[in-house]
Measured scan of single mutants.
Amino acid sequence: HHGSGALAALHADGPHAGLPVTRSDARVLIFNDWEERKRSEPWLRLDMSDKAIFRRYPHLR
């Protein structure tokens, strides 16, 4: 199991509170979210491209 239990660094406060600090933090969040959702949506594709990251977390651009 590759990303399970990996912890992402999140901004503690300010405008980005609760959001990932780096792209690799964002990838951890996206992976964990996908892993949760694919139980009920097995067709869901995992997209951890930069484009997917920016779409979801525009502050990382």
Rank of each mutant, 00 (worst) to 15 (best):
H1T: 08
H1G: 14
H1V: 13
H1Q: 12
H1E: 09
H1C: 13
H1K: 12
H1I: 15
H2F: 14
H2E: 12
H2M: 13
H2R: 08
H2V: 09
H2P: 12
H2K: 13
H2G: 05
G3R: 08
G3S: 09
G3A: 14
G3H: 11
G3W: 12
S4F: 10
S4Y: 07
S4E: 13
S4H: 07
S4D: 11
G5Q: 15
G5H: 11
G5K: 11
G5R: 15
G5S: 11
G5N: 10
G5A: 15
A6H: 12
A6F: 14
A6C: 15
A6L: 13
A6K: 14
A6W: 13
A6G: 11
L7Y: 11
L7N: 08
L7I: 15
A8D: 03
A8Y: 13
A8R: 03
A8W: 06
A8K: 06
A8S: 05
A9T: 14
A9G: 07
A9K: 12
L10K: 06
L10E: 04
L10R: 06
H11P: 03
H11I: 07
H11G: 03
H11W: 10
H11M: 04
H11C: 05
H11Q: 03
A12L: 13
A12K: 14
A12W: 11
A12S: 13
A12E: 13
A12Y: 08
A12F: 11
A12I: 14
A12G: 07
D13F: 08
D13W: 08
D13H: 11
D13S: 15
D13G: 10
D13L: 09
D13M: 10
G14L: 03
G14V: 15
G14N: 03
G14F: 03
G14P: 05
P15S: 06
P15Y: 06
P15A: 08
P15L: 14
P15N: 07
P15C: 06
P15T: 08
H16E: 03
H16K: 06
H16W: 15
A17E: 12
A17T: 07
A17R: 14
A17L: 06
A17F: 11
A17H: 07
A17Q: 10
G18R: 05
G18P: 04
G18N: 05
G18T: 04
G18V: 03
G18F: 04
L19D: 05
L19K: 07
L19H: 02
P20C: 02
P20H: 02
P20A: 01
P20L: 05
P20K: 00
P20V: 01
V21M: 10
V21P: 04
V21N: 04
V21W: 02
T22R: 08
T22M: 04
T22N: 07
T22L: 03
T22G: 07
T22Y: 02
R23C: 14
R23K: 15
R23D: 08
R23F: 13
R23V: 15
R23Y: 15
S24L: 08
S24T: 09
D25A: 06
D25P: 12
D25G: 03
D25Q: 06
D25C: 02
D25H: 03
D25L: 02
A26V: 02
A26T: 00
A26K: 00
A26N: 00
A26F: 01
A26D: 02
R27K: 12
R27W: 04
R27H: 03
R27T: 04
R27L: 09
R27F: 03
V28M: 07
V28L: 15
V28R: 10
V28H: 06
V28F: 05
V28Y: 07
V28D: 02
V28Q: 11
L29K: 03
L29Y: 03
L29M: 10
L29H: 04
L29A: 05
L29F: 04
L29V: 09
L29E: 04
L29C: 07
I30W: 01
I30A: 01
I30R: 07
I30M: 08
I30Q: 00
F31G: 01
F31C: 10
F31W: 07
F31H: 07
F31D: 15
N32M: 11
N32R: 15
N32T: 11
D33E: 14
D33G: 04
D33V: 04
W34V: 02
W34E: 01
W34Y: 12
W34L: 00
W34H: 05
E35N: 11
E35T: 14
E35I: 15
E35H: 06
E35P: 01
E36R: 13
E36G: 09
E36T: 10
E36A: 10
E36K: 08
E36N: 08
E36W: 09
R37G: 05
R37S: 04
R37E: 03
R37T: 03
K38G: 04
K38Y: 11
K38E: 02
K38I: 12
K38F: 11
K38A: 07
K38P: 06
K38W: 02
R39Y: 12
R39V: 10
R39M: 09
R39G: 10
S40W: 12
S40P: 03
S40V: 11
S40Y: 15
S40Q: 09
S40L: 09
S40H: 08
E41Y: 09
E41V: 07
E41Q: 08
E41N: 09
E41K: 10
P42T: 05
P42K: 04
P42F: 04
P42N: 03
P42Q: 06
W43A: 15
W43F: 08
W43S: 08
W43T: 10
W43Q: 10
W43Y: 08
W43C: 12
W43G: 11
L44I: 08
L44A: 07
R45F: 08
R45C: 15
R45E: 11
R45H: 11
R45I: 11
R45T: 10
L46A: 02
L46N: 01
L46M: 12
L46S: 00
L46C: 06
L46T: 00
L46P: 03
L46K: 01
L46I: 04
L46F: 03
D47P: 01
D47T: 01
D47F: 03
D47R: 02
D47Y: 04
D47Q: 03
D47C: 04
D47G: 02
M48F: 08
M48G: 02
M48I: 13
M48R: 02
M48A: 05
M48K: 01
S49K: 00
S49W: 01
S49H: 01
S49L: 02
D50K: 07
D50I: 15
D50H: 07
D50Q: 05
K51Q: 11
K51H: 08
K51T: 12
K51I: 15
K51D: 11
K51V: 09
K51W: 12
K51P: 13
A52F: 06
A52H: 06
A52M: 07
A52L: 05
I53W: 00
I53Y: 01
I53K: 09
I53M: 05
F54D: 15
F54Y: 13
F54E: 07
F54G: 06
F54C: 08
F54A: 08
F54L: 12
F54S: 06
F54I: 09
R55K: 11
R55P: 01
R55S: 14
R55Y: 09
R55Q: 13
R56K: 14
R56L: 13
Y57L: 05
Y57M: 02
Y57T: 01
Y57C: 00
Y57P: 15
P58K: 05
P58S: 02
P58E: 02
P58N: 03
P58T: 02
P58W: 03
P58V: 03
P58M: 02
P58R: 01
H59Q: 01
H59R: 00
H59K: 00
H59G: 00
H59L: 00
L60D: 00
L60M: 01
L60F: 05
L60K: 00
R61I: 13
R61N: 11
R61P: 05
R61D: 12
R61E: 10
R61Q: 12
